[in-house]
Computed example of a mutant assay.
Amino acid sequence: MAGDRTLTTLGWDDITATADRIADEVRADKVPDVLVGVLRGGVVPAVLLAHALGVRTVRAVEVLHTTSDGVDAMKSAAPQVANATSLGILTGADVLLVDDVAGSGDTVARTVELVRTAGAARVRTAIFVVNAGNWRRPQEPGQALTYIGTFVDGWVVFPWEQP
């Protein structure tokens, strides 16, 4: 029932603290050449990380798994890619793929494939929030994802989604 679900609302202080922590982890492992944000929600964290890391090359790609905006939005059977060419050529690049939230893990997995197909030599992932209750990839999130901000069990509302 909708009233029984867990809803986590994050503020800008939460997001900037997460960005700073992830940036420290990334920096310790080597600053990437390129950041790729997953449109739409992953672009805001990607830009925050780009500034924190001093990376000027930021790209975006649209990979959607939800069919609409809003709490408990339905998901399509598989992530839908729009204009994969927006990644450009990533031949030999060290790429950090950034998204705001990972649920099932399908969108991240599909986007990693796209980045590798574009020629990236190294692909790491930074996910600000993992919805552990929805995860269904063969590996646990901590094994499948490189940098994780936090875990929740339920729907997340980010500050850029709030009126």
Rank of each mutant, 00 (worst) to 15 (best):
V38P: 03
M74I: 06
D13W: 01
V108K: 01
A46Q: 07
F151S: 08
V26Q: 00
T16Q: 09
A109I: 01
L114P: 02
F128C: 05
V129P: 00
V38E: 03
A120P: 01
D106F: 06
P163R: 11
V112S: 04
G142C: 09
A50L: 04
P32R: 11
I148P: 03
L49H: 03
R110D: 04
D100S: 08
F151I: 01
V38I: 15
R110G: 05
T16L: 12
G133T: 07
I127W: 00
S86W: 03
T125D: 07
T66R: 15
D100F: 01
R40Q: 10
L87V: 07
A73D: 10
R59G: 07
A144V: 02
D72I: 03
A60R: 06
G142H: 15
T146A: 13
N131C: 08
R27I: 01
P32S: 14
L49V: 09
T91P: 02
G105N: 05
A118K: 03
R136V: 13
V26I: 06
A77S: 12
L114R: 04
I22F: 06
V71I: 15
G11N: 14
A73Q: 08
G119M: 08
V115L: 09
R136L: 07
T67F: 03
A2C: 09
H65D: 06
R27K: 15
L97G: 05
G41A: 09
N83S: 13
P163W: 07
D94C: 07
E140T: 15
D72L: 12
D72S: 15
S104G: 13
A118H: 01
Q80S: 10
V71Q: 07
W135A: 01
D20W: 02
V26C: 02
L64D: 08
T111F: 09
V44R: 01
T6M: 12
G92Y: 11
A52H: 12
M1Y: 10
V98K: 03
L53I: 05
V115T: 08
L87P: 04
D33L: 10
G41M: 06
G70R: 11
K75Q: 14
A102K: 00
R27Q: 11
R136I: 09
K75C: 14
I22P: 02
R21C: 05
K75I: 11
G154E: 02
I89K: 14
D33S: 10
P159G: 11
R40L: 13
L64W: 07
D69K: 06
T111C: 12
V129H: 02
L7R: 04
D20N: 11
T91S: 13
M74D: 14
V43C: 08
A73W: 05
R116N: 10
V108C: 04
L48A: 07
T66V: 08
T85Y: 14
G133R: 05
